[in-house]
Design a binder for these strands. Structure first.
Lengths: 114, 114
DNA sequence: GCATATATGTCGGGTTTCTAGGCATTATCA
DNA sequence: TGATAATGCCTAGAAACCCGACATATATGC
């Protein structure tokens, strides 16, 4: 009923994460925070989505992980982009643009002639 | 490797269908064709996605169906927007715009200061 | 008679996300 | 000191949605 929750569009999260990591290596918790800040609170990534996504991206060799000390002096898993990941990200950015264009065509389609 | 298939972004299909139907009542097969034409072949809606989506939209009272004779002289199920469906569609269009803006913020985010 | 286009539908499988937890450490504040 | 919040990682189960494959039927044209 209420459905007031902002649900992430499926398939978008991977790209967003890759892009945030491309800004500089970061760990999961910080990635989620950055994503929320940059998007002005639009994206609120839940942990149940975040960590599976990170593992997925690592499995596909788009991210690589390394345990290091975080800003707060605690151990955290820092992710960085692989070459493959950067290529994939760039391709996905292009693809996203095409998708937005295509949706735009539909949304702006004029009413049919009778 | 190749994975060249263009997969529809999950959650977009409903909006696209509602928008196409808003252009004028139509049946499933024609909706898929229009979607493909309008989007310049970007969207190719498969039957396994199309018909479940139509039933879903009807269940939610966003579309209503009526059997009529199609252009080719055959019986076809014509869908039209309900008032509820139109309201939902308009809200989803706004939401889509916000989503695109938010993704845009992330994709255009400048590299961090060190 | 047969292929193709039109037209609707189902089924199973795969992917992704959410909810809802669990666990551990450090910082803050009463 | 003790409680609570913030930081940081993780998993399991369920739901939603899309795809590929398949099944069915009629109309048209060769």
């Amino acid at each position: 009923m209420s459905e007031a929750r902002i649900e992430l569009l499926r398939g978008t999260l991977d790209l967003l994460i890759l892009k945030v990591v491309a800004l500089g290596p970061s760990h999961g918790y910080a990635i989620a925070q950055r994503l929320q800040q940059i998007s002005k609170d639009f994206f609120q990534v839940h942990q149940g989505s975040l960590y599976p996504a990170l593992h997925r991206l690592e499995d596909r060799d788009w991210l690589q992980a390394e345990w290091k000390e975080s800003e707060t002096g605690r151990e955290a898993k820092f992710y960085s982009l692989t070459k493959k990941g950067r290529r994939h990200m760039e391709a996905e950015v292009v693809n996203w643009g095409r998708l937005v264009d295509a949706v735009g065509l539909v949304l702006r389609a004029p009413a049919k002639e009778s």
